[in-house]
Design a protein around this nucleic acid. Sequence first.
DNA 1: AGCTTCCTCAACCAGATGGTTGACAACGCC
DNA 2: GGCGTTGTCAACCATCTGGTTGAGGAAGCT
Lengths: 113, 113
Amino acid sequence: MEDDRLSRVFAALADPTRRDIVARLSLGDATVGQLAAPYAVSVQAVSKHLKVLEDAGLVSRSRDAQRRPCHLEAEVFDLMTSWVDRYRRQAQERYSRLDDLLAAMDNEEGAAS
Amino acid sequence: MEDDRLSRVFAALADPTRRDIVARLSLGDATVGQLAAPYAVSVQAVSKHLKVLEDAGLVSRSRDAQRRPCHLEAEVFDLMTSWVDRYRRQAQERYSRLDDLLAAMDNEEGAAS
DNA sequence: AGCTTCCTCAACCAGATGGTTGACAACGCC
DNA sequence: GGCGTTGTCAACCATCTGGTTGAGGAAGCT
């Protein structure tokens, strides 16, 4: 489902190492080895992280001989932001209605006195 | 750190049930019982979900006798969207630079022929 | 063909996660 | 005081997760 995809995107970004990888890829494509270099963990661990990002649709990988260059698919971000914006807007609307109500009560009180 | 907080927010929203709870709370505050009613799971499980959301700063709880009304803290969304926007923008800039480069190459080719 | 480089797959391990049930604290209502 | 309602805490369980090591596939280099 679409639900599943959203869950995978959020879960993928819940890990600091993976967010870091995304940040690096936003500057340009990179191979697994290049991405793994700055971290204390093994290359295999980074490869796993990339698989998670790939399953979430955030990263795609092509071939270049033994190399597997990684590319950020930034459009997937929209899935998240549209979800977030929807409920943020809803909450905000509710607040403004509450403000209206309070304003109306103030008015009534003012008229009564 | 701030990193940790961001991780907790993303992790909290990685679960469909918790996203659903957030969606319901965007329409108005609710008690644990009210939130648990639509689901097949136990009240305890929902209480755990709320604890995760609370630890992430997405939900706050007050007291009303035995009741514990839950309230959505929508400002926390900004933490996420600002992170996302930052790297989306970075990736987009990179693309536009690439476009510039390709345009420049086209020009050169045009001038050479 | 043989060696090295780059990367993935498989098995394993410790700790987190999402669910359960049972006990119990806090409060309103008789 | 006793009872039902509301919610949390604790213990337990199965599964997922992030890490490890070891083996091996794929491709370039000599």
